[in-house]
């Protein structure tokens, strides 16, 4: 385990493109996540929520502001960062190398960081995500969507990080499989004291997984609140109220009252 696992983002801005074509994807976003806390970023497509996550994962180099994980500056590209924060992607069909067996996928991060004892660690990781040793030498095309996502989670845990960045980890999965993956993430967080930053468009998933959440729209945070307040149906902002109503299922009257917040 490395670092305390806190996440801080201050005045984060991300622009894509240049000149008049530039898209201001993230505009001055600030939030912080305490060690061991589970924090949700919720928003619709284009709200910038995934971009924030990709900045923290070091996948996006072109941004302004400050972002630190366990006190380490994300912009520094510090070699310790991979061992502190890891990411799980949305689509388990795209996030596993099609020509690598599960074993190779899981052993790769160990090889990169010169960590020995790969065989035992791989088996332990498979066990931790609820897959037996029989899965170890399979290729991704021999796995179901849920099994693939378990492998992706195991891969994120190989370096024993303290922060898990989750980008819509269940939205490509069936309902019953989603429940299994959410339960797994819940258990891992409890057992390992992981800090989680979960991005989703699904308020119910955020409410289930997180302690606090921030609602994003058009690249900015609309409001930050405790999940308990969300449960009581007490959002302060009209945008959040609308999002909440729309998440509760179809209602002709609600549909008629929808306003655009662009």
């Amino acid at each position: 385990m490395s670092g305390d696992g806190s996440v801080t983002v201050r005045d984060l801005s991300v622009r894509f493109g240049r000149g008049s074509q530039a898209v201001h994807a993230v505009r001055g976003v600030s939030f912080s996540v305490a060690p061991g806390e589970s924090f949700g970023l919720v928003g619709e497509s284009g709200s910038g929520k995934s971009t924030v996550l990709r900045v923290l994962a070091g996948l996006n180099q072109d941004w302004q502001g400050t972002a630190t994980i366990s006190g380490l500056d994300v912009a520094s590209g510090d070699r310790r960062l991979p061992r502190i924060a890891q990411m799980v992607f949305q689509d388990p069909y795209a996030s596993l190398h099609p020509r690598h067996t599960v074993d190779r996928t899981l052993a790769e991060p160990l090889a990169i960081h010169g960590i020995g004892d790969a065989s035992r660690r791989v088996e332990q990781a498979l066990m931790a995500v609820g897959l037996g040793p029989g899965f170890r030498f399979r290729y991704p095309n021999q796995l179901s969507g849920g099994q693939r996502q378990r492998v992706a989670i195991a891969r994120a845990l190989m370096l024993e990080p303290s922060v898990l960045l989750l980008d819509e980890p269940t939205s490509a999965l069936d309902v019953s499989v989603q429940a299994e993956i959410l339960n797994l993430l819940h258990r891992l967080r409890r057992e390992r004291g992981l800090t989680m930053l979960l991005v989703s468009h699904n308020l119910a998933v955020i409410a289930h997984m997180c302690d606090r959440l921030a609602v994003m729209n058009r690249g900015a945070i609309v409001e930050e609140m405790a999940v308990a307040a969300l449960r009581r149906g007490e959002p302060r902002e009209a945008y959040t109220r609308q999002l909440l109503l729309a998440s509760l299922g179809y209602d002709r009257a609600v549909a008629a009252s929808m306003v655009s917040y662009d």
Partner: peptide, 10 residues
């Protein structure tokens, strides 16, 4: 995503 995953792993 699998290349991104490798990048995140360092």
């Amino acid at each position: 995503d699998f290349i991104a995953a490798a990048q995140i792993q360092g």
